[in-house]
Every structure is written in C-alpha cells, then in structure tokens.
Amino acid sequence: MNLDLKKLKLREVNQKLQNIGSKQNQRSFTVINPEGNHAICAGLKDEIDVTIKGHTGYFCAGMNQNAFVTITGNVGTGVAENMMSGKVHVKGNASQSAGATAHGGLLIIDGDASSRCGISMKGVDIVVKGSVGHMCAFMAQAGNILICGDAGEALGDSIYETEIYVKGKVKSLGADCIEKKLERKHEMVIENLLKNSGIKKFKPSDFKRYGSARKLYNFKIDNLSNY
C-alpha cells in the first residue's frame, strides 16, 4: 500500500502506521515523497514492513518497536533514536546521532554515519557499512556497534559497556576507551551482525575491538588526568 506524503499529512501517515494492530492482513507499506520531512514513521509498534522511498529529515523511525523500516535515501539527525526493537535499514548516509539512546533492535546504515553515531546507546546493535564521524559511541552503555570503514576522533569517549568493532582506521580514542582483545565470544557477535546485515565480504578477525577501561565509572582522584 502506497502512502503519499504529497497527498496525506505527515500526522495521518504516522497515525495510520502506528495503529495497524496484530489482526490486519495488510502488513507492507511504502511511503513516497518524504521530501526531508521530520519524524516520519516515528513510534511504530507493530510487526509491519515500511519502505520510505527518498530522503528523510530528523528522527526518522524514532522509538521504533517491532517494525522493519527501510529508507532508500539519506536520513537526517537521530534516525532510530530510542529504538526498542525491530530493524531500521538506511540505504544512504545518516546524519548525526544515529541510533541515539536506542535500547534494542538493529540499525543498519549502508553509507556513512556522521558525528555522535550511537551516542548513549543502551542495547541496540548498530552496523555501519561506511565510516563514522567524531564522538561515535559517546557515553555508550550497552549493545554493539560494528563499523566497516573508519572512525573519526574521540571514538567511544566516556564509554560504559558497549562493544565497538572497527575494521578501518581509528583517528583517535576518547577518554577511557581502549583497544581490547578479540575473543571467540566477540567473534560470534560479529558473525551474527555480519549475517543479519547481509555482509559477506568481511570476517570477524578483520575487526578490532574497543571498549571501556572502566577507570572513569566513579570519580577517583587518582584518575583526574583521564577526565
């Protein structure tokens, strides 16, 4: 079913998609003419497939639960912010704060993500097939982020327990983020992420693992220089 944002109001499209329920047979939708509008497909909660054809504005597919949302173009700030479950797949590039504070589900970005990707993430899995900008995984608390390209400055600054895997170069690590040993259990996580995002050309051992040195969890005067 096609939903045309040139003919329907954004609120009408979102309200329709937010209230599909579990009984309807129609479970596949296409949103056309997004034209960079904000908050398209925010707050979906049912198991439906939505394809957005074109480029979107801020907070696309924010707070997503259960739904599978695909965007064929680029997305603005905060795609899939605070996602709880389901899948969001961006075929173009993502602007800043992609997957911010997201608790669960899978966010796939085929292109690059700019600054602060995965900021304060709380359990989501993020796969970026291109590169990420500065401050990726800032204060990230849980979940995994897999970066197939390079990472910008201050990767994982003030990180808690998110695991970061990077294939390319890291410009610099943020406060309290260190490289860690890639063990079998981590390789299994990477294997899963590669499989779920349809990446065949890389293997888990191509990636390096980064995470928290756990020195800044609580204030200690001895660690003052690390802050």
Binding site: E35, G36, H38, G54, H55, N74, S114
Partner: peptide, 22 residues
Amino acid sequence: SEFQAMAHLPNVNNAKIFEPDP
C-alpha cells in the same frame, strides 16, 4: 540546514548528497 529546504530543486533525489565534515 536541512534536506527539506532543497526537496523542490530539480533532480535533487539523484544529486550527490553529503554532510560537510567539521
């Protein structure tokens, strides 16, 4: 500032679209 400002430009959906690096 936002993509929506240029959504009306000719052939914009096939343009090379990117964010300027800091």
